[in-house]
């Protein structure tokens, strides 16, 4: 069983590394296509948004604390607070809500 786990870890690491390496090593020229440029421009924001909603609502013990954490994160991020402030602020609010409810 122990060897198995290490093969799993090797497979995970290898696949993930290849995904990250191939474009950075193979694409040497500037991409000229405005469409591909625009596509790449939107990808990170679209992926992260899709990963956050609706998953965030089931990330804590209750949907109410999760919703409160989400709103907190949105407000802090709107005022351009740092990554850490936003993440920690959301955690603190979830903790407080779960103490009350």
């Amino acid at each position: 069983m122990t060897e198995n786990t290490y093969i799993y870890i090797l497979v995970m690491a290898l696949v993930t590394f290849l995904i990250r390496v191939l474009p950075l090593t193979l694409i040497r020229q500037e991409i000229k296509s405005p469409f591909i440029k625009s596509f790449l421009y939107y990808v990170p924001y679209v992926t992260l948004s899709a990963m956050t909603v609706p998953a965030i609502f089931t990330s804590t013990e209750s949907i109410y604390s999760a919703a409160a954490g989400f709103v907190t994160a949105l407000i802090l991020a709107f005022f351009r607070k740092s990554l850490l402030t936003v993440a920690a602020g959301a955690c603190v609010v979830v903790y407080i809500i779960e103490l009350i409810v």
Partner: peptide, 20 residues
């Protein structure tokens, strides 16, 4: 309860990247 609160951290980070 603490572990539950930490569950939201990842998504808080994502929000901080998308909103500004």
């Amino acid at each position: 309860r603490l572990i539950s609160a930490l569950g939201v951290a990842l998504y808080g980070m994502f929000v901080a990247i998308v909103v500004p």
